[in-house]
Design a binder for these strands. Sequence first.
DNA 1: CGCACGTTTGACGAAAGTCAAAACTGGTGG
DNA 2: CCACCAGTTTTGACTTTCGTCAAACGTGCG
Lengths: 256, 256
Amino acid sequence: MAQNSAFSKNLLSDCSFFKGLPEEDVKFLLEADAIRYYSKHAQICTEGDPANLFYIVLSGWVKIYNINSDGDVSCVQPLTHGSVFCADSIFEQGVNLYSAQAISECELMEIPLKDLVEKSATSPELSARLLSVLSQRIADMQVTLACSELKDSSQRTACLLLRLSSWMTGKGGTFKMPYEKSIAAEQLGMDQATISRALARLEDIGVSSSNGEIHIKNFSLLSKHCCPHCPIPSNRCGGRRQCSQEGVVEIKNHIF
Amino acid sequence: MAQNSAFSKNLLSDCSFFKGLPEEDVKFLLEADAIRYYSKHAQICTEGDPANLFYIVLSGWVKIYNINSDGDVSCVQPLTHGSVFCADSIFEQGVNLYSAQAISECELMEIPLKDLVEKSATSPELSARLLSVLSQRIADMQVTLACSELKDSSQRTACLLLRLSSWMTGKGGTFKMPYEKSIAAEQLGMDQATISRALARLEDIGVSSSNGEIHIKNFSLLSKHCCPHCPIPSNRCGGRRQCSQEGVVEIKNHIF
DNA sequence: CGCACGTTTGACGAAAGTCAAAACTGGTGG
DNA sequence: CCACCAGTTTTGACTTTCGTCAAACGTGCG
């Protein structure tokens, strides 16, 4: 762990995957010490290929996705700092269940799956952590699925904006779109042109965008536009804003 | 376990959840011995309510689903013999993540969640089994998502028919629709009228239906209609038929 | 300045939702 | 044995939404 130990320490305090795990497990997993840099658009792994590694995103954004023979992508999910992926390959005969691609420059920690298999057999804490990774993935997919069944494209777009801004406090605010709108469109299962028009239609309820910056005048107003049509219990969705009579905003959860 | 012991024995040999588990774990879980009968349309549990039980379907069909304040359902999945549900509540502060309703008469085995929590803490086999339940749910959701994202209604309907007939061998065949078409429509996220029209359009490729019976002339022909547009690896989807030059059908997986 | 890339816009057509009426099914009881 | 009923499915007419294609626009960069 030589020169990266300072960074790794930093990682430990930040990355929920390691938080609370026995020191020994963490040391064991970090032994290989492979922090790797990927440039934008680089392929990280491919669906169906033999899986040797699992990954933790340290910085930047990665999308995981499936692709069919027509080249259409689906089940697209952008991941960022703190997210773990491909750990689930160990339940599937060591084959990757999805592809992953860097959608910005990013740094990943790559850990051999066999270490994970070996260690989780004897560490109940680690296998509990694995369970929570799977649980998280189920929760994410549930949000995606529920969102995709929401009424129209502007509601789905609103839902995504709320989730992307779930770390923000206050009545409203401005944030930078963390990845391209075309990726957001893939994530929402709609055409790029559709998300563009959807955003335009959201102007009426206080959403404006320019140069990749999104400004939301009032989170709870936006929340009223889509969340009532969503079946997900509010404590499972980071985007949901609860508003009291005065429109005070409460944040329940964060996605990052 | 008094009078039900014969039945339970039968269950053991059939239900994948118990198969291969240590005798002791199985005994412990089956101690409460609650086999309960539900009539069609009966509510089994409700999203958001405190979860005390998890369930194993012994016979009949159950649908799990989420519902929004407009009364629209989503994330609908029909389950039958051998399926486990609500076990995932233990990862979510003991609250049900979805509602469940009987969509035919059915028998369920109801086991206290606290027994599951207690036993899985000390039994690695049982917690591995839990992992595989979660894994299975992820796989199911992935199929649902992929299916909903990139197919028109006739392809999605074809996909469902193939999955429902995945237990059948031979070139083609007839089977009874195991639940109502309106449920199938919910499952596929489309309107009831749409699935009806979609079925009609499938007549051209050898699908006919009458009186709740579906006849498929040639599985691999139907498979050609939808599977090439699906991103799911073929070994993860029970419906997929692989066909050689001569149209010989191979079955990879079953869903029940 | 010009190029590459991502985004927006317009015109059009195809697909699916909506509503409501009609048709079909299986079961019940006279 | 038939008539009736409730529940389910099909069908038709209409509307809305979204995908598609392609051109125009904007931004950042060498």
